[in-house]
Amino acid sequence: MALITENTRKEVTEIVYNFFADECEVELKDIHGDTNIINDIDGDSLMFLELIEIFKKKYNLDIELKTIGKYSVKHPVQTIGQLIDMQLLIIEHENKLLELDN
């Protein structure tokens, strides 16, 4: 179980913001925590999956997509801020993510 520091949050936020700016071809300044991924910047769940792969590699995470799938059914992500929060939870809890609901 990894410890989430302010630095981790900053790093994750930066990666997510740059990712969506690049992928959705929008200005970095137009991306905020409450930006709706689908409605505001025309994003999709493929981007979410790609980001998971990026963070899996970067933080050497032991997390199955199935676990994230189950978690996201109960905790759907709509905004950039929610996505960052979920990524941080994934980094922190990895495959124990579902235990948060118990």
């Binding site: 990712f19 690049d22 992928e23 790609e50 792969e53 990026i54 590699k57 970067k58």
Partner: peptide, 12 residues
Amino acid sequence: NRRLSRSLEAGI
């Protein structure tokens, strides 16, 4: 190509 290149850069 951009998505694929990003996967290369990220080491995926």
